[in-house]
């Protein structure tokens, strides 16, 4: 079987398209690259969705933690503490148990025990808590002058937040947020590794790497392939976030831009 055929058969295997049976013998490099790459679909899926949905919750949580209302403030702070203070590994475990026990209550909860939804929710809450803390820190360091200037322009409430506070907060938080995004994508490998089962051998990159390590009894090929894919993914994330960072800082003169980046490297 040529490598092209392998790619045709297995490149979408992780989402159930293509050859049903996984390779049984040979285990060529091509097969390993294709299947582990196929699994990356899930890592990207979890990462992108959790990150984009988590972004909004994170903003809300950050504002909540900075709120004057005691109830909202305490609730946000506890949410952040609970998810930042416990290992993701254990969060997955509990979520799976919780969803399992909800299952008999109503059929609505059926999809929650599958990774595509259940694990996504955990990752979403997790990244919301981490980013929420980052955003909160940034919110605290928004320069007073900016807010005063907005006041002077007669901006209030929502307008002031949307046009002044929020962009500044993002700008300040961005380098740390980039790190968080990288961590989140790495964390997606834990999905099938703890708690959530893999259905019909549809799993993420680590699942397939594990499969090959198990079949070939040689961990030194599949895991470095996995590492290779993740380095690529990390580079993509860094450059995408770098572009957004440039966009966020586009109004600053060249020199200040560089300096701000330097200083912020240390937040996380």
């Amino acid at each position: 079987m040529s490598c092209w055929e392998t790619i045709a058969d297995y490149s979408l295997r992780s989402i159930g398209i293509g050859e049903r049976a996984l390779p049984r013998e040979g285990f060529t490099l091509c097969q390993q690259f294709t299947l582990i790459g196929s699994g990356m679909i899930w890592n990207v899926y979890f990462g992108v969705l959790a990150l984009s949905a988590g972004f909004f919750l994170a903003t809300a949580v950050a504002l909540g933690k900075a709120s004057n209302n005691v109830v909202i403030r305490k609730a946000s702070a506890w949410f952040i503490f609970l998810f930042r203070g416990s290992p993701l590994f254990i969060q997955f475990f509990f979520a799976y148990f919780l969803f399992l026990s909800l299952k008999p209550v109503s059929p609505i909860f059926d999809p929650f025990t599958s990774a595509w939804l259940g694990a996504l929710i955990v990752l979403f809450l997790n990244t919301a808590a981490y980013s929420g803390e980052i955003f909160y820190g940034a919110l605290q360091s928004v320069p007073r002058g900016d807010i005063e200037a907005a006041d002077a322009y007669g901006m209030t409430g929502w307008t002031r937040f949307r046009r002044v506070t929020w962009p500044t907060m993002l700008r300040l938080a961005w380098p740390a947020y980039t790190n968080e995004a990288i961590f989140l994508f790495h964390a997606t490998t834990l999905v099938y590794f703890s708690g959530f089962p893999a259905w019909q051998q549809k799993g993420d990159a680590l699942y397939y790497a594990n499969f090959f390590a198990d079949k070939t009894f040689n961990p030194f090929i599949p895991y470095p392939i996995l590492a290779f894919y993740f380095i690529l993914l990390t580079l993509v994330i860094i450059s995408l976030f770098g572009l957004i960072n440039r966009h966020l800082n586009r109004h600053l003169p060249e020199e200040t831009r560089a300096r701000i980046k330097l200083k912020l490297n240390v937040i996380r």
Binding site: L100, S101, P197, A198
Partner: peptide, 17 residues
């Protein structure tokens, strides 16, 4: 459906998974 430990496989049957 694959689980990491034998315990979990039995738990899955009991829960109807």
């Amino acid at each position: 459906v694959e689980f990491a430990t034998p315990d979990e496989t039995v738990a899955a049957v009991r829960s109807g998974e």
